[in-house]
Structure formats: structure tokens, C-alpha cells
């Protein structure tokens, strides 16, 4: 097992300083005859905050699944921090500093809030197979409690996840993605279904992240997307349609015709 290798990478030991956090070259994903992604070229610099926009079926979530390793791309290369991870299983990419949240919360319903976050911390450290229970002064347990506090769930720390309200589950999703030492986080519609207050809290959490943590966020809510992103990538029919600064994209007539004009909630 390559655990000893991957556990070291949290402190940016692998890859060169100039390498992009994420670099996709010519990534395509075919489902039978359907091209969910075709010839995607994308480069995210370390610490960069990028929003990905596009209508339903534009291929945004498929893109995330290819980056995480849930699917292998049909063609093309994926590099993370200078390292070719195209054929790596998901857990190896995660151990190199990638994190992601899911559009529909994927949590461990049989476990408590504390155990969910503890597992996230444990997954990117040693002792994944440990038979010893964490002691009272366990550093990962301490880290878990801090993450839970950061997403305002301390009062519910010993509550089973299954009984949490929807918005609280979304917050827990984010806590899981912040565990360990993330370097690049993929947020898949984190604001979907949240109340205005919860959206404000979400924007605070995202903008408050340390500068070395970059992220890519899929977001339908333009107010959220344009406030938390430095650059915006617009996807359409599995291709990259436009890329630019938030203002440029917002004012682009083609983008407005395609996306903002029709079906923008």
C-alpha cells in the first residue's frame, strides 16, 4: 500500500511549485454514444477559486466525477500538482489534497456528526485500519470538533446524521471536505436548497478559507458564484464554452443568451 507515500503529501511535498493545482488536457467522457464531456482543457492554479456554470446536462458533475476518480475519463490526461493522476483511484487523489462535496448529500446516515467528520479526518491520515479507539486527547478527534464548530454544528455533535435537517446536512458536507489538509476542493452546488441566511453563511465559509486552498464550485445561484469565484468557466453540452473574469462572463452577450436569459432561477 502506498500510504506512507501519500500521507506525506499534505504539506505540498510533491509536484513543483509552479505546477497547476489541476490540469485537464483533452478530457472526454463517453457514455455509450453520448459524449458527456468532450475535449475539456482546464487549468486551475494553486489557491485559485473557480466557478463552473452551465445548464443542466452541461457536464459539470461528470467533470467533477472524472477529477475525483469516480469515473475514468474515456480519453485525455488529468494532472494534480504536477502529477499525472489519470489512472489513480479516488482515495489516492484524496490523499494528495483533493476534496469534494456532493450535490446530493452523501453522508453516513448510521453514524453521528462527530463520527462522520472523524472518518473524514482519519481518511487522509495514518491509522485507517487502527483497532485502537481514539483516546480523549486524540488530535484527530480534536480537529474534528474544530471543523464541526466551524460549520456551526457543535450543538448536534452526537446526533445521528439521519435526523439532521437538510441545511445542516449540507453544512456537514462542507466540514467533510475541509478535513485534513485540503489543497483543492470541488464543491458541487453547495448552496442548492439552502435558505438565504444559510447561503450567507456558506459564502462566509468559502471566502474565509485560507488563501492556499483553491476550489472549483458548481453553482446555479449567480449571486453566490460571482461572489466566491475569481474566474468563471462556462460549460455547454460537455464543452467549455467561455472562460473569464466574473464580470466578463456576466456581461457576455453569448452567455446571457445561453444561460442567463432562459431558465435562470
Amino acid at each position: 500500500m502506498s500510504e506512507t507515500l501519500s500521507d506525506q503529501t499534505a504539506g505540498a511535498t510533491s509536484g513543483t511549485a509552479s505546477a497547476n493545482a489541476l490540469e485537464l488536457t483533452g478530457v472526454s467522457k463517453l457514455f455509450g454514444a453520448l459524449a458527456a464531456l468532450s475535449e475539456i482543457d482546464l487549468a486551475i492554479k494553486p489557491g485559485e477559486r473557480r466557478a463552473v456554470l452551465g445548464s443542466n446536462g452541461a457536464g459539470k458533475t461528470t467533470l467533477f466525477n472524472c477529477i475525483t476518480g469516480d469515473f475514468l475519463p474515456s480519453s485525455g490526461r488529468i494532472r494534480m500538482f504536477g502529477e499525472d493522476v489519470t489512472r489513480f483511484p479516488a482515495q489516492e487523489r484524496i490523499r494528495r489534497g483533493l476534496r469534494r462535496t456532493y450535490q446530493i448529500s452523501l453522508l453516513f446516515n448510521g453514524l453521528t456528526v462527530r463520527d462522520n467528520v472523524y472518518l473524514a479526518c482519519r481518511g487522509v491520515s495514518r491509522g485507517r485500519y487502527s483497532f485502537l479507539r481514539p483516546r480523549a486527547d486524540d488530535s484527530l478527534m480534536h480537529a474534528s470538533e474544530e471543523l464541526i464548530a466551524a460549520v456551526h454544528l457543535t450543538d448536534l455533535i452526537d446526533t445521528p446524521v439521519a435526523v439532521l435537517a437538510y441545511g445542516q446536512q449540507r453544512q456537514l458536507e462542507i466540514a467533510l471536505a475541509l478535513a485534513g489538509a485540503p489543497r483543492l476542493i470541488l464543491f458541487d452546488e453547495p448552496a442548492a436548497g439552502l435558505s438565504p441566511t444559510e447561503r450567507r453563511e456558506l459564502v462566509e465559509i468559502l471566502t474565509g478559507l485560507p488563501g492556499h486552498i483553491g476550489y472549483v464550485i458548481i453553482e446555479h445561484d449567480m449571486d453566490v458564484a460571482l461572489r466566491v469565484a475569481e474566474r468563471v468557466t462556462m460549460m455547454h453540452n460537455g464543452r467549455i464554452f467561455k472562460e473569464g473574469l466574473p464580470e466578463e462572463i456576466e456581461n457576455d452577450p453569448e452567455v446571457q443568451a445561453l444561460y442567463l436569459g432562459d431558465g435562470h432561477e
Binding site: M1, T68, G69, D70, P89, A90, Q91, I94, R95, R99, R100, Y102, L106, L107, F108, N109, G110, L111, D115, N116, Y118, L119, A120, R122, G123, V124, G127, R128, Y129, S130, F131, L132, R133, P134, L176, A179, G180
Partner: peptide, 24 residues
């Protein structure tokens, strides 16, 4: 209640998410 057992329960509830947390 040890990491091994907790992670196993995580695998039971959601194997895909466990991989996305760094578990094999």
C-alpha cells in the same frame, strides 16, 4: 468504535463517499 470499525460502518452507509475521503 475504533477507526477500523467506524470506517467499516462508513463503507456500509456510503462506499463511494468513503473513497472520496481517502479510504480504500
Amino acid at each position: 468504535r475504533a477507526p477500523f470499525g467506524l470506517a467499516l460502518q462508513g463503507v456500509r452507509d456510503n462506499p463511494r463517499r468513503m473513497a472520496a475521503l481517502g479510504f480504500n
